[in-house]
Design a protein around this nucleic acid. Structure first.
Lengths: 210, 210
DNA sequence: TTGAAAGTTGACACTTTGGTCAGCTTTTGT
DNA sequence: ACAAAAGCTGACCAAAGTGTCAACTTTCAA
């Protein structure tokens, strides 16, 4: 009475799930959850609609799979904010990494922003607890720097919001960034210039003057 | 052969259009254009669906009416960035005004953000030209301050993006702000604390040291 | 080689949606 | 008072949407 045995390398499944997720990220990012049609995801992924339903049993299942996937990387750049580093170096690296991530993963970035704007309906309590906990950890690092006299006493939570907001902006609100910067589209050096301006301004804003 | 004569005070029309717009702002902000159902706007405004169609002939007409209305006020706070003022005072007032606006008009703020994230599909060329032109004007003011030695040479366009992003964040991404600040919800004094932190940090970041 | 599991899909059922309309009631200038 | 303009709305429709399914093809371990 052996149970089902097969554990093939799942190549077909893996590939199709990846195609669906990839198409889903793009379309959910532009249309939001309610605005997205499964048929559109199917078309964009090159699969018939019924085949999409073979892998996911509902629109919500696709969406939450994507959200879970995103959350795993949204705080990645925060690793640079660590007590062994000097604040100047830490913030410089953080800003650079965050801008690079957001530039190379525009759709993911937008989808996350879209989910939040639409009320964070599909973020679980666990997801939100994760955000709170990660913030706490890094707030503590900054408080340590302040206590050590390495930084001016700036509220760390509002500081993180400034950084998050400023870096996200270029990808999430690209059309406005394009207009404000008077460029036809944003390229790598626009992101570099952004990193430079944000870094310089913030560092002068939070460090003791030499 | 006189043309139609009546010009009543339009009280009923005014009131119902206002109710529809108000409901529309809330729902478009949360669901985006494609995700919004006219029936939902009708219910939220307390009018039968057919009555909504008596005033607006399509979903797009409601949406663009709202967008046009928003754009008229989105750059309102920029009036404080004017050459007669000293930069410190100007930025302080701008940050305060922008945060106040965004707090008191959360749905409008979110709807505008949502429209941009979703690709600015319903911003006309004229709208975008307006954004560009308003930015240019205020960039010139900042360049004047820099030339006068009243400010450090910070790229004005990226500076505006930092300010816009940081102030919008609290309303547009409220669920994340709530988690990051560990509050059950944001109240007036959280916005005041935000204004203080942003103002202090930015001013130190852009002004010559005394 | 083979057969059972995995994958594929056109066609279908059922629901929701945007938008229309005919006929009704209310408002208002005269 | 009254007629014409403005306002109102239940009922309806075509189109578009989500999700299902039975029958087919492909894959692969034994």
């Amino acid at each position: 009475m052996a149970r089902a045995v097969r554990d093939p390398e799942e190549r077909i499944r893996e590939r199709n799930v990846r195609l669906i997720i990839k198409a889903g990220i793009e379309i959910f990012a532009r249309k939001g959850f309610d605005g997205t049609r499964i048929a559109e995801i199917a078309e964009a992924s090159g699969l018939p609609k019924a085949n999409v339903y073979y892998y996911f049993s509902s629109k919500e299942e696709i969406y939450t799979a994507i959200i879970a996937h995103l959350l795993a990387s949204w705080d990645d750049a925060l690793k640079y904010i660590s007590p062994e580093r000097e604040p100047a170096e830490a913030f410089r690296l953080y800003i650079k990494a965050k801008l690079e991530y957001t530039r190379k993963n525009m759709a993911e970035s937008r989808l996350f922003a879209s989910e939040i704007i639409q009320g964070a309906r599909f973020l679980t309590k666990k997801d939100r607890e994760h955000i709170r906990q990660v913030t706490d950890t890094h707030v503590a690092v900054i408080e340590g720097w302040i206590a050590a006299g390495k930084m001016l006493p700036v509220d760390p939570r509002h500081l993180f919001i400034m950084l998050w907001a400023s870096t996200q902006f270029y990808s999430d609100f690209e059309p406005v960034a394009v207009d404000a910067l008077k460029k036809p589209r944003l390229k790598a050096d626009d992101y570099e210039k952004a990193a430079a301006t944000i870094t310089e301004t913030i560092l002068r804003g939070i460090l003791r003057q030499p």
